[in-house]
Nucleic acid binder design. Structure first.
Lengths: 246, 246
DNA sequence: AACACGTTTAGGGTGAACCCCAGGTCACTT
DNA sequence: AAGTGACCTGGGGTTCACCCTAAACGTGTT
């Protein structure tokens, strides 16, 4: 889980191939040039501008490591990672994201096999950090950005980390469902939905009614606000959830 | 309002100075190099990594055009633009954003003087589009990305564009306030809040109760969902609204 | 075996959030 | 002067979303 600090041994990375997936030209160019500086000459870099193509390139070349941006057309980086890890579990996936949304951490955490190596780099990371992450993943270790590590700790804390059950109802109220509609969707009773919601509100730190000051907040909307700001909800996911038939 | 198509006259831009503000090194580098190619030799480019510094550079050099990223530390691009346009209204502001959020369009629309020139470029724009925008703004015209133009049309449409009153209550329910708390905050009655909300729901296209199928949606949360996806609400703004004392 | 924990389900109560209808002000247009 | 549109306010009603307490189940821990 820890990172290999930049050991000064000329830092040359010697692998067969690497796949880079990002929909923005400029990001790909930057990363390609950065990697080229540190790779041996006979390494090929393959580029994809969407998740679908990334998946195909990985199938074709079976690289030890693949860089995935999260926001991509056709197939998101997370979904690509899911397919990749299902077919080739030993692939080292390095997520390269703009945002530190908790939801991505949640998803990824379930995707990666216990002994798998993966990386999580934010786009404001330094060049050195990206190189460190690449080396770590190639060596079978994980490299996770400090900000992401903080989020992981939060999800693992019993008092603040949401269970799957709580997350399910959060998704439903984020779509805008009533309790009744949510119950129908999840095949549970309305009372169960409310019980889950109550836990959710507590974990998000919403003050219970009657406590201290006047009841200033609508719990349901307040939960959406806090979830939003924690990155448990975001625009892309909202659109995604509604499309699905479940 | 229209753009000057790339007239092939060697495209050299001759101005005294240009300010670029973006918190990401790579974006600044890209833009600087792009502009350098098209600028005359004796033009200086000044760079800022946050909104505060951008403001100071503009005050110092009074450039005819300034590029502003929206997401920046200390002072957002929008707020920088507000200060800049208040002090030096003839400055050509070009917003360079990752996102096409309706809220930014709303804000900017009120900031720019009627006869002012400004640009709105998205980060997936082509190099040519950025150059076109720069030329247009220098020439006193506006250049607005097609996707942004669509949004502007939506805000101007009476059936879908929100009034200031409706937007105010939207902000309040996004924070998570109850109707009562909202009424207190806006110095109106609870009934007035509900009247505004009713209009809001209609404009967002939420089906009224009793219509067609069963009542599937919680209007309040559904409104947040739709507003979120329209870009009327986003994470940065949520945090911002709550900090303010109003 | 005893315990904690997450989860489901229940009954019963309150207030918030929504519905419709109607009357009123104000600014701007015709 | 009449009309239009956006907004505030009121009364009166229904439903939804929350509160409390309590019982029961399975799982994994001690």
């Amino acid at each position: 889980m820890l990172l290999a600090q930049g050991e000064e041994r000329k830092s040359e990375i010697d692998v067969l191939g690497i796949v880079i997936a990002d929909d923005q030209d400029r990001e790909r160019t930057w990363l390609r040039e950065l990697l080229t500086k540190h790779l041996s000459i006979h390494t090929s870099i393959f580029e994809a501008e969407d998740g679908q193509k990334a998946l195909e390139l990985v199938r074709e070349h079976k690289p030890p490591v693949v860089f995935l941006d999260i926001e991509m057309p056709k197939l998101s980086g997370i979904k690509s990672a899911e397919s990749i890890l299902k077919e080739l579990p030993q692939t080292g996936v390095i997520i390269l994201s703009n945002h530190s949304d908790e939801i991505f951490v949640r998803k990824l955490w379930k995707l990666v096999p216990p002994d798998g190596a993966f990386g999580y780099v934010l786009k404001d990371s330094t060049d050195q950090q990206v190189i460190d992450a690449t080396k770590a993943v190639l060596g079978g270790d994980c490299w996770i950005h400090p900000r992401i590590q903080r989020i992981i700790r939060r999800t693992e804390n019993g008092a603040t980390g949401l269970t799957d059950a709580e997350f399910e109802v959060l998704v439903c109220i984020a779509i805008g469902f009533t309790d009744k509609a949510t119950a129908r969707r999840l095949y549970i009773t309305e009372k169960a939905v409310q019980a889950r919601l109550k836990c959710l509100y507590t974990k998000l730190g919403i003050p219970i009614k009657g406590a201290s000051e006047e009841d200033e907040y609508n719990h349901r909307c307040r939960a959406l606000n806090l979830s939003f700001r924690r990155g448990l909800i975001n625009r892309a996911e909202l659109a995604d959830w509604e499309e699905q038939v479940w």
